[in-house]
């Protein structure tokens, strides 16, 4: 097992996000999956500062997720603290602007990926809605979009359909087929999707 300090490099810090360059074939994983975002097609990842300072590890890209198995037992890498780097001097300013720009590009490119990684089960439940509501909850027509709807709002609506307290055509019938936990996870997943442009 490689020493963590050799297989990743802190690239920068931007608004609570630490950007790392990692070795190909590895990915970041935090205790809370939403805390780390692996960049598709690039050996890079971004994690929250919380993940950086608490529990954060590099594991082989194809190891099972969720902390089981030998891969998950890899030692947590020791990292240079980004705070020390960022505090160095004013000459770091252009670097910080670059970090900001790249973080924005990466965040936009990987927004869907991050949400998907956060809860694959939620993603699968939500996918059962996409036939009518559109891929990732972005609808083209009279059926409402679900992407970006706040979790509490969507979960409450579905709960009302399920309980027979809200009128509708197919939704009062379909909502009765989902468990409360499934409704909660699907609502959380849709809430994390970017809302469609009007």
């Amino acid at each position: 097992m490689e020493n963590g300090a050799r297989i990743c490099t802190v690239l920068g810090l931007h608004r609570g996000t630490v950007l790392y360059r990692i070795w190909p074939g590895w990915r970041c994983e935090a205790a809370q999956p939403a805390d780390c975002m692996n960049i598709p097609c690039e050996p890079m990842c971004a994690c929250t500062v919380r993940a950086h300072f608490i529990v954060w590890k590099l594991i082989p890209a194809h190891a099972p997720r969720g902390g089981n198995g030998p891969a998950a037992a890899a030692p947590s890498p020791r990292l240079d603290t980004p705070r020390a780097r960022m505090q160095s001097s004013a000459t770091m300013l252009p670097f910080r602007i670059l970090v900001a720009l790249v973080a924005l590009v990466l965040a936009a490119a990987a927004a869907g990926v991050r949400a998907a990684d956060a809860d694959p089960a939620g993603r699968s439940i939500a996918a059962s809605c996409a036939g009518c509501h559109g891929t990732n909850g972005v609808s083209a027509g009279a059926v409402p979009s679900l992407a970006g709807v706040p979790k509490a709002e969507l979960a409450a609506k579905l709960g009302e359909y399920k309980a027979g307290r809200r009128e509708g055509t197919i939704m009062p019938q379909l909502a009765k087929g989902y468990t409360d936990e499934q409704i909660d996870r699907a609502a959380a997943w849709f809430a994390a999707q970017p809302a469609p442009r009007k």
Binding site: L11, P24, P40, C41, A61, L98, V99, V102, V105, A109
Partner: peptide, 24 residues
């Protein structure tokens, strides 16, 4: 970091297609 930016730029130009460099 600058090398990394170059790689990200290349991936962006490829539009995230299956042939993007470095894809596993």
């Amino acid at each position: 970091f600058l090398r990394a930016i170059g790689a990200v730029g290349a991936a962006a130009l490829l539009g995230g297609s299956a042939s993007a460099r470095g894809a596993t």
